[in-house]
């Protein structure tokens, strides 16, 4: 599995750290209530197929990436900088 970092080019999987579903970029409002927060923290779509997730280029450029990846084939379809993804870190 190689991830094509927008900064560094294609790099080996071992340079990256996995964070989880990219839903972490859509942090709910602090007052959104327990249901919304429970869903955000614990529940996952967990698809067998394409999914968007957060990876950190740890021993590379130290950028956070949004990676669109197939959990069945491990194919990587798209890699974007999390800082460039709309709504990231808002």
């Amino acid at each position: 599995m190689r991830i094509n970092c927008p900064h560094c080019g294609p790099r080996d999987r071992r340079e990256f750290t996995y964070q989880g579903d990219a839903l972490a970029l859509d942090r709910p409002d602090p007052e959104a209530g327990p249901d919304v927060w429970n869903d955000y923290i614990h529940n996952r779509d967990n698809p067998a197929g394409p999914t968007r997730e957060l990876w950190y280029h740890e021993t590379g450029c130290a950028a956070w990436l949004v990676v669109t990846r197939d959990t069945v084939t491990h194919d990587i379809h798209a890699v974007e900088l999390a800082s460039a993804v709309k709504g990231a870190g808002k």
């Binding site: 560094c8 790099r11 080996d12 071992r14 340079e15 740890e58 021993t59 590379g60 450029c61 130290a62």
Partner: peptide
Amino acid sequence: AARTEIAHMGG
């Protein structure tokens, strides 16, 4: 240049 792993060390 590259930031990468050199023998498992970030370098």
